[in-house]
Amino acid sequence: MLRTLLAVFLLLSGGLAHARQLHVGLVIPQQGPFAAFGAQAREAFTAWELANPGIFADTVEGDDDCTAASGADAAAAMSEAGVDIIVGFVCTESLAAALPVLSAEGIPVMTLSVRADIISEEAARLGWSFFRLAPRAGEEAEVASDAIFTLWADKPFAIIEDGTIEGRELAEAVRTTLEGRGLKPSFVDNYRPGQERQPSLVRRLKAAGVSRVFVGGERSDLAIIARDAKEQGVGLRFMGGDALYAARGDNPLPEGTLAIVASQYLVGASAEEARASLASLGLIAEGLRVPAYAAADILGAAASRMRFDDTSITQFLLDRRFATAIGPVSFNEQGERREPGFTLAEWRDGAFHRISPRQAAESDNRSQ
């Protein structure tokens, strides 16, 4: 009996010796225009911890008001709190200020929302410990260009943009990439956003003889352009960027509208646990809640599987592939997610749905 108890004690003590208590930092906006994003991240972590109790040693919150000063302050506070890893920093300015401080302390950061390419470029150049669940900004134009090249190479198409920095940069990146592959749009133009009608733009599109239009602009503007085109009897099919994944306005998107949407927002069966956990708190799976839940999935796996003799949490994350609420996640040496950050989607029956270029071509042919 004594020998049996001793064996059990040694087994338990050996298991405890290899347990890894993970102290998690959550740096999110507490007030101001981005507070809703912070609340969604907090709610997701709360839901995850209720569904998976006792995995994290603790979760320490810090404030991010999207300024460089707040980033540096939050980094110092998190370092003093002794966290092992941080999730958050929703803006480029605060993240860029925090990364040098935290990397010097060996504390990696996982962002849910910052897409700027420059962050990962600087992280690689300066050795910052950085991971990104959000898609890389430049990938949006790459996926859009591939879709246009595959679907519209034999059709007259236009590229138009709304004159904003985001819209212009996306449209220009798509045009440049396509022309580098030998495909030129039949018509390039811009329009004034936020108008109640766009009749002159529709007339120009009609005069150009195009049948397909890529829009670098907001959902509401595309809906108005499509409505006016229909009223004028101009048959157009539309594609836009991730900006189309937005709240519905007064005018609906046409059925069959294509969009390049961030993959983390079009999740399927992998998000069922997240949906159920959030629903138990009366919350729906929207905004940053599912990506934040996925971050908790990754850190939960680290807390459960890391040993005290593992080199670092950074290397642990680089070496493995994780099952999460947004699907499989693995990271390259720059901390970028290896899986596609954007996907082609089609608007039908009141929602965007993933679609392959082949399926999109079949849908296009059926509608003609």
Rank of each mutant, 00 (worst) to 15 (best):
I284M: 02
A285D: 13
T257L: 01
T311G: 06
S356L: 09
V329L: 04
L318Y: 12
A274S: 11
E339H: 14
E336A: 13
D309L: 08
L244E: 00
A323G: 04
L278R: 03
Q334Y: 05
A279H: 07
R248A: 13
G256P: 10
E286Q: 12
D310W: 02
E362F: 14
M306I: 05
A296L: 06
I313F: 07
F316P: 13
N251S: 11
V234E: 03
N332L: 04
T257R: 00
A294T: 00
D309K: 10
D250Y: 04
V261Y: 11
G287N: 05
A292E: 02
L236M: 02
D309Q: 12
E362C: 01
E346P: 01
S270V: 12
R289P: 05
I298Q: 02
A247S: 06
A285Q: 04
R289W: 08
A302F: 15
S263F: 13
R358E: 14
E336G: 15
E346V: 15
R237T: 05
R321T: 15
V261W: 09
D242A: 13
A274V: 01
L278Y: 09
L236D: 02
T324I: 10
S263A: 15
A301G: 04
L281W: 00
L299P: 07
L318R: 07
S312T: 15
Y265A: 04
A301Q: 15
E286Y: 04
S263H: 03
E255F: 04
R320I: 02
M306K: 00
A269R: 14
T324N: 10
F322T: 05
A276R: 02
P340K: 11
R307P: 12
E362G: 02
L317E: 00
T314G: 11
S330N: 14
A276E: 04
G300C: 09
M239V: 12
I284F: 05
R354S: 14
E346I: 15
R348K: 12
A243D: 13
E339R: 01
A276Y: 03
A259N: 15
G268R: 13
W347D: 08
A279Y: 00
E255Y: 08
L266V: 13
P328L: 15
L317M: 09
P254Q: 13
F352Q: 08
I326M: 08
Y245N: 10
T314H: 09
L288I: 08
S312L: 06
S263N: 03
F322Q: 11
A246D: 01
T257N: 04
D242H: 05
E286M: 10
V290H: 00
I260N: 02
G282D: 00
Q359D: 15
W347K: 07
V234G: 00
L258N: 01
G282I: 02
L344R: 06
N251H: 14
L281R: 09
W347R: 07
P357C: 06
R248D: 14
D309I: 09
G241N: 12
R358D: 09
Y265R: 09
Y293T: 01
P291L: 07
G240H: 05
